[in-house]
Write a protein that binds this DNA or RNA. Structure first.
Lengths: 275, 275
DNA sequence: CGGGTCGTTGACACATTTCAAGTTTAGTGG
DNA sequence: CCACTAAACTTGAAATGTGTCAACGACCCG
C-alpha cells in the first residue's frame, strides 16, 4: 500500500487559505464512515478485540473532506472530537510570540491528530491540514466512555500517546544535536517508513510538503532547507519530481543520519492480522 | 512544599560513576513504601478513586536509594518495572552515533521515569539519575493488569503520557526556534513551576544540574550555557549560590521567553483534594 | 495574461561551536 | 586538617553553520 493518488495530496493553492472549518462536508453513509477507519493507526492497534474495533467504528460521526491549510483546531482552543487523518497530510504546530513556527508532529494518512483532546480542555498546539485531506471525527465524550468500558481501547490510547512520545523524543534529538543535512535525511527516512514506501533499498512516495513546511518540522529556515536539498539532489541521494520523493539508496541515507526505525514502533502483525 | 533538603540533591561525585544498579537497597517496610507514592504525579491524578489509589500503592515492590549518574535503564534495554522518582532528579537521554546527547525529559521528584515501558519491550531512550535519588518500582505486569481492571488507572496513564507529550512539544519549539538565552530562561521558568518553588514573583529552588546537563536539555554546548548564564547573572535575572537557583523576578523572565505555564497541565485541585 | 506561491541565488551577518587553556570548587585520603 | 584530585566552571580567539535580506525565476491556476 503505497501512498494515495497524487491528486489527493496536492494542496489546492488558491482557496481557503487560513480558513477554519465550518460544517461537515460530504457526509457519507454510515457504512462508508466506518470503513474510513480501516488502516488507521487507531484501528490497527493490536490491543483491540474485534468487538472493540466495532464499537469504535460505530462512534464515527462524520467523514469530511477539508481543503489544504485549514485549521482543524487552533492553539489554545477546545476540540470536542478526535480528528483522524484518513487521507492527506496534516501537522501539529506551535509558535513563539515572534512568529517562529515549529511542528511537533507531522501527520500522514492513518494518524490521529489531536489525542490530547481526550484529556485536556485546551490544546497546546494547533492542528492544520497541509494538503486537501479527509478527516474522520470521533466525539471525545463517546470515545472516553468507550475507553472506560473496554480495556483494549483505553490501552490503545495509551499506546498511541507513547508512540507519539517516542517519535517526538527522536525529533528532539534531531533538533538539538543534528546538522541540517542529518535532520533532513532523518525526516525523509522516517517518512519513508511511515508511509510504507520502501521497496527493497529504494523508496518513492508522494511528497506534498513545501520547503517551508520541512523547515518548520526541522527547526531551520526554508532557505537553508533549499540549499541542503540541492546538495542531496546533486549527490544523487534524493530525487524530487512531480511532488514525488525518490530515495534511490535508503541504506546510505540511513547511514548518513544514524536512522534506526525501532522508535517508530511499527506493528508488522497488525496489518496482517486484519488483512 | 518547597524542594527537598539540599544534601539529598547533591550528586555524590566520586562514586559509582556510570554504574548500573544491582540489588534493591534499603528495603523499607511496606507501609513506608506505599507512602513513598504520595505526592507523586501518578498518585495525585484526579482520575483515580481512593480505591484505585490503594490498589496502586499495594503494587509497589521496592523503594531504593540510588547514587547519582546511575542508569536505571539503558537505551534499547527492557525494563520490567515502572520507575518513579520519589526524590532526586533524573533524565531521559538519547544519543547520536557521534556521541551527541539530548535529554527529551528531565525528571524531578514525583515524576514517572519510563512510562513507555508499559507498552514497549525496548526503551528508545535511557533513564539515568542526575543526583542521588529514591526510586519506587512498580512491576509492569501488575500495573497493566490494574489498568485493565480500573478505568481510572488506565486513564491516568493516558493522561501522564499526554502531559509528557505536551511538555516535549514545547521543548521542541524551544530547540527549533528559540535562542540560547530564551531556551535557558524557558527551562528555568518550567522548573520553577514544576518544583512548585514560586512565592509571589520570586522563586528559589535547589538546583543540582551541571551546566553540561543543562546543555544536554537545551541542545547547546556547556560552554555556551556558561556564557549565557553569566549574562543572566550579571543582569540580575538569576542568582546561583550553593546549588540553589534564585529567580528574583519570575514575571520578567517569563516575558523574555514567552513562557505560558498552561502546557504543564498542573492540576491545582489534586493536591488540595488529597491534603 | 496575471497574480501568487514556491523555489532558487548571492552576499553578508551573527549566534553558536570548537579548541585550548586556566581557575575554582568540592569531595578524598593521608 | 591539609594536600590532592577530578569535576565543574570560566575565559579567549578563531572557525563555521545557519540565518537574514533582497532579489529573481518558474510554475500553476484562474
Amino acid at each position: 500500500m503505497k501512498s494515495s493518488p497524487r491528486s489527493r495530496l496536492l494542496p489546492s493553492k488558491h482557496r481557503d487559505r487560513s480558513s477554519t472549518i465550518r460544517d461537515p462536508v460530504r457526509q457519507s453513509p454510515r457504512n462508508a464512515q466506518l470503513s474510513r477507519l480501516v488502516g488507521t493507526r487507531l484501528w490497527t492497534s493490536r490491543f483491540l478485540s474485534h468487538e472493540e474495533r466495532d464499537a469504535l467504528g460505530n462512534v464515527v460521526v462524520s467523514t469530511r473532506s477539508v481543503s489544504a491549510n485549514t485549521d482543524l483546531v487552533r492553539q489554545g482552543e477546545r476540540a470536542d472530537s478526535l480528528f483522524i487523518v484518513a487521507d492527506g497530510w496534516a501537522c501539529r504546530y506551535t509558535t513563539t510570540r515572534e512568529g517562529g513556527r515549529q511542528f511537533p508532529a507531522l501527520m500522514v494518512p492513518g494518524d490521529v491528530g489531536n489525542l490530547d483532546s481526550l484529556m485536556f480542555d485546551r490544546l497546546d498546539y494547533g492542528v492544520r491540514t497541509l494538503t486537501q485531506a479527509t478527516i474522520v471525527s470521533l466525539p471525545r465524550d463517546r470515545v472516553l466512555a468507550l475507553a472506560a468500558q473496554h480495556p483494549g481501547i483505553g490501552r490503545t490510547f495509551t499506546w498511541l500517546a507513547l508512540v507519539e512520545n517516542a517519535i517526538l523524543s527522536i525529533w528532539a534529538l534531531s533538533l538539538g544535536r543534528r546538522s541540517a543535512k542529518e535532520r533532513l535525511v532523518h525526516l525523509l527516512c522516517e517518512l519513508s517508513v511511515r508511509l510504507d514506501a520502501e521497496d527493497g533499498n529504494e523508496s518513492s512516495f508522494a511528497f506534498p510538503l513545501t520547503q517551508e513546511h520541512i523547515a518548520d518540522a526541522l527547526g531551520l529556515t526554508n532557505i537553508h532547507v533549499n540549499r541542503t536539498m540541492q546538495q542531496l539532489r546533486s549527490n544523487g541521494m534524493i530525487g524530487t519530481a512531480n511532488r514525488t520523493m525518490t530515495l534511490p539508496d535508503v541504506q546510505s541515507l540511513r547511514d548518513i543520519c544514524g536512522f534506526d526505525l525501532s522508535y517508530l514502533h511499527i506493528q508488522p502483525s497488525a496489518e496482517a492480522q486484519l488483512a
